[in-house]
């Protein structure tokens, strides 16, 4: 009855390079959001995407590394997910706070220091 016998294995033609290129592309998409968008929420989105690119790297190196049974890459990615979730919560709370104060979330408008 178990029809899901697509064991999650590795393709012969796929090397570590392909994963690194994918993660580099994802990282740069995140970087575009951080540098080019005029919106604090999208900056946060970009940071999340960059962290995800780092996670792809952790897992790809774990999978292709010499000692996958040590699980170091997976553990790193697990901690990174947890920390990213906390970062998102605090970052979004900060954005709400900034919005209440400046009535905008365009980061280039946060100029005055006087409260």
């Amino acid at each position: 009855m178990n029809f899901a016998n697509l064991s999650f294995d590795f393709g012969v033609g796929i090397t570590l390079h392909t994963y690194l290129v994918l993660s580099a592309a994802l990282f740069c998409i995140g970087l575009v959001a951080v540098l080019a968008r005029r919106n604090a929420i999208l900056v946060l989105v970009g940071i999340e995407l960059m962290l995800s690119a780092a996670n792809i790297n952790f897992i790809a190196f774990w999978r292709f590394g010499a000692h996958p049974e040590e699980m170091v890459g997976v553990l790193f990615a697990l901690f990174s997910i947890a920390v990213a979730a906390g970062e998102a919560a605090v970052g979004l709370a900060l954005i709400i706070l900034v919005y209440r104060h400046y009535k905008t979330i365009n980061p280039s408008q946060f100029r005055s220091l006087n409260g």
């Binding site: 999650f8 294995d9 740069c28 970087l31 575009v32 951080v34």
Partner: peptide, 29 residues
């Protein structure tokens, strides 16, 4: 911003493809 990101992407691409030690296949699952 877009230009800097593209430059970073190209730099990463070049550095990935210039390191032959990365061209490994995965070990057994």
């Amino acid at each position: 911003g877009v230009g800097v990101s593209l430059a970073v992407f190209l730099a990463l691409l070049i550095s990935v493809f210039r390191s032959p030690s990365l061209a490994v296949k995965a070990p057994e699952a």
